[in-house]
């Protein structure tokens, strides 16, 4: 089938734009149908953090997150995109409240899915209590939306990864798509090293960081269902694929998740490194996984990797 001519150029631009390098706004512009984004409380409203000035830190007019409504292949979606280049995409009071409000509306409507483009180091330390509580409110709002039938899809491939409470929110989503640089974890490499020593985790060992927290490991482990190449078009296609796959949420999902996670501990709990887990999963040349190009990795993951579908 031939795409209408007007759609060709945006798709090509999306294909040639690195999700990792792009800003939150560029990601949304290229992810959604061209020109469809309507932002809520955009930078023109200047709703900045009321707390950063206590620390003489610069504010940003959107507090580092874009929330709004758009269309994906013609269908309505709510979107939220964190800007990892502003305070590491961290959750503060205003930043978090925007996402909470979006999720509460989605819950009331019940049929419009939510895409969350994570790019976050976790709680914004300068407003740590407000940020932590915002994350708790978002987690509850995600689960209430899902219980009302809303699909909440997380897309992870930004500079700041998805750390701290961001990792917990991601764990609440209906499904995740992740790219290789899209790290998902609670404690960051530096935090583990600072607290437990370089023997526990050498944060400067980038290969160790990628294979412990990076997208390939999360895909093989079943934490993410779809692996995307690092471009916006791939994330768009991943979002569409996941929207088609996600089923309704209920108690059976939580029971299945309990079994899935307990099974993971039984199977891999004694593994010392991601390479050991991949080998145990049946990958003959696990050492080669970090070097595999995206298409070969996706083929491998589809053959061997686990999924969390119906069990999260």
């Amino acid at each position: 089938m031939t795409a209408p001519l007007k759609d060709v150029a945006p798709a090509e631009r999306a294909r040639s734009t690195s999700f990792y390098e792009a800003s939150a706004r560029t990601r949304l512009e290229l992810l959604l149908d061209a020109g469809s984004l309507i932002e809520f409380i955009g930078p023109g409203q200047r709703e900045v953090s009321p707390h950063l000035k206590i620390f003489d830190l610069p504010e940003q007019f959107d507090d580092g997150i874009v929330v709004g409504h758009g269309r994906l292949d013609g269908s309505p979606v709510f979107v939220a995109a964190q800007e990892g280049r502003f305070m590491g995409g961290a959750f503060g009071e205003v930043h978090g409240a925007k996402l909470t409000g979006l999720l509460r509306a989605a819950r009331e409507i019940g049929t419009v899915p939510v895409l969350v483009l994570f790019d976050t180091g976790g709680v914004r330390l300068q407003e740590a209590n407000a940020g932590e509580l915002a994350i708790a409110e978002i987690m509850r709002a995600v689960m209430e939306a899902r219980s009302a039938g809303v699909k909440v899809i997380g897309l992870i491939g930004g500079r700041s990864g998805c750390y701290g409470g961001g990792g917990l929110i991601a764990g609440c989503c209906s499904a995740l798509a992740v790219s290789e640089p899209g790290r998902i974890a609670v404690s960051g490499p530096e935090v583990i090293e600072t607290n437990r020593g370089v023997e526990e985790f050498d944060s400067r060992d980038r290969a160790l960081v990628w294979r412990t927290m990076g997208g390939k490991h999360r895909r093989l482990l079943g934490a993410a269902d779809v692996f995307a190449d690092d471009n916006v078009q791939d994330f768009r296609e991943a979002a569409l694929e996941l929207l088609g796959l996600v089923g309704p949420f209920g108690l059976d999902r939580l029971k299945a998740e309990q079994d899935r996670l307990a099974g993971r501990l039984r199977s891999f709990g004694a593994c010392g490194d991601a390479i050991d887990i991949w080998t145990a999963e049946g990958i003959a040349d696990a050492q080669a996984v970090p070097e595999l190009p995206a298409d070969q990795f996706i083929a491998l993951a589809n053959r061997i990797g686990r999924t969390s579908r119906d069990a999260r």
Partner: peptide, 22 residues
Amino acid sequence: MSKRDELLGLNEFLAHLAKVLI
């Protein structure tokens, strides 16, 4: 804060506990 916990997907385990409570 450990390599093992993060390797095994601590974010999923903590989220799961919160989800079950919610």
